[in-house]
Computed example of a mutant assay.
Amino acid sequence: MPRRNRIYKDSIYKQINKENKQILSNDVLEMKSNRKTEKTIYQYATDIKMFFC
């Protein structure tokens, strides 16, 4: 199921500092290892991306 994204644009997210992207990636991996649901991980990542943009 494709997810719509109307909050931030991928073109803007591509310009974000690589270190910030790595921090988000590490947090997502940690949540997966703690067995968080996919919806929780998706919502968290989307919120952080909105903050970055």
Score class of each variant (00 low, 15 high):
residue 51 F to G: 02
residue 9 K to A: 09
residue 32 K to D: 03
residue 16 I to G: 00
residue 53 C to W: 09
residue 10 D to H: 11
residue 39 K to P: 02
residue 18 K to I: 08
residue 22 Q to K: 15
residue 21 K to Y: 01
residue 28 V to G: 00
residue 20 N to K: 14
residue 41 I to E: 05
residue 5 N to S: 10
residue 41 I to M: 08
residue 45 A to D: 06
residue 14 K to N: 11
residue 27 D to M: 09
residue 36 K to P: 01
residue 7 I to S: 15
residue 5 N to G: 06
residue 34 N to C: 04
residue 48 I to L: 03
residue 36 K to A: 02
residue 3 R to T: 14
residue 29 L to D: 11
residue 51 F to W: 12
residue 25 S to V: 02
residue 30 E to S: 07
residue 21 K to A: 00
residue 12 I to T: 13
residue 9 K to W: 00
residue 13 Y to W: 15
residue 36 K to G: 00
residue 42 Y to S: 05
residue 9 K to G: 03
residue 44 Y to H: 07
residue 39 K to V: 10
residue 53 C to K: 12
residue 9 K to R: 12
residue 24 L to Y: 07
residue 31 M to C: 03
residue 8 Y to A: 04
residue 11 S to F: 04
residue 35 R to E: 06
residue 26 N to A: 13
residue 19 E to R: 14
residue 14 K to G: 07
residue 34 N to V: 02
residue 48 I to Y: 12
residue 8 Y to D: 00
residue 11 S to P: 06
residue 52 F to G: 00
residue 42 Y to K: 11
residue 38 E to R: 05
residue 49 K to P: 00
residue 46 T to W: 09
residue 49 K to G: 00
residue 8 Y to F: 15
residue 46 T to R: 12
residue 33 S to T: 04
residue 3 R to S: 12
residue 29 L to W: 06
residue 7 I to M: 11
residue 14 K to R: 15
residue 50 M to N: 13
residue 21 K to C: 02
residue 19 E to F: 12
residue 13 Y to M: 09
residue 27 D to R: 07
residue 43 Q to E: 13
residue 49 K to H: 05
residue 34 N to D: 11
residue 18 K to R: 12
residue 38 E to P: 05
residue 43 Q to T: 09
residue 34 N to S: 07
residue 51 F to H: 10
residue 31 M to N: 00
residue 1 M to A: 12
residue 15 Q to S: 13
residue 25 S to Q: 06
residue 50 M to F: 05
residue 31 M to T: 02
residue 39 K to H: 10
residue 9 K to F: 02
residue 20 N to R: 12
residue 35 R to C: 07
residue 5 N to A: 10
residue 40 T to L: 11
